[in-house]
Computed example of a mutant assay.
Amino acid sequence: GRTDAGALAHSHRIWPSDSMDPMQRFDVMKHVSSLLPPALIGTHVGASPSSTSAARLPLSTRCIVALQGHMGLELNPQELREEERSTVQRWTRFFKAERESLSHADFYYLDIDEPSLDAVLMFNASMSGGLLFVLRRGYPQNAQPPIIRLPACVSGKQFDLELLNPEDGDFVQHSSAWHEGGVWPISGDVLQLAGLRVPCLRYGHCALIKLGPWASPNTQQS
């Protein structure tokens, strides 16, 4: 009941919820994104603790979840420490670079065999790329994080896979090499049929995985 479609006759964007708690926003976006494209949905980076839920969640999580809509800031920059300021600047620059692609992306909410994890793929078919968000909203139930399979939109394509925030991952005994960063070529068929083992995450952290159009070695040299 926060807004309705009629509001778009008077505004460029709508505000889907008063809560900027990223856990709650992740759920809100599941519903509003079925009706509206990302460019029309205001999603802001809030302060900690959250003004609505009192939750204290990492600044990186607050920034990453805000990328799912039209990112903005709703906090006092003067209260940020230097490393926090750098985090906000980093993800703001990233949003500006990816804004055009994200504004035309489709949302795919994925099934995971672990209730304490949520995942959504924002995929732009015309640009053959997207972002995979994996949010840890509860404590792990297994020693290894689960495998998730991506939807059919990735089949038949080649991607450069990159975990953009490996610093937010946690230790796991048998982690995959790509969990430590870097760009890794992978086929969409593998992502759909075999799946991808997600990084091990601490409670309240969100992994952001970029699927970029595959750059062949010949293309990179040219």
Rank of each mutant, 00 (worst) to 15 (best):
V88Q: 08
S187F: 04
D21N: 15
D111Q: 11
P49W: 01
F171E: 08
V28L: 08
P166M: 07
R62E: 07
R85S: 15
Q141V: 11
A125W: 03
P38A: 05
E83Q: 15
S187M: 04
G195I: 03
D160H: 11
D113N: 10
T43P: 02
G195W: 05
S60E: 14
Q144A: 13
G72T: 01
L102R: 11
Q68L: 13
S128T: 10
A152N: 14
F107N: 11
S60W: 02
T43H: 00
K30Q: 13
S187L: 03
I186H: 05
G212I: 04
R62I: 04
G130W: 00
G156Q: 07
W15K: 10
L59S: 04
H44M: 07
T52R: 12
D113F: 06
H12E: 13
L67C: 05
V172H: 01
G212C: 14
P213E: 15
W214F: 15
A119Y: 00
L208N: 11
V65G: 04
L73P: 01
F107A: 14
G6N: 10
C206A: 03
L193P: 03
I41C: 00
L36R: 01
A105V: 03
R197W: 00
P146D: 13
E82Q: 13
L117Y: 14
L117S: 00
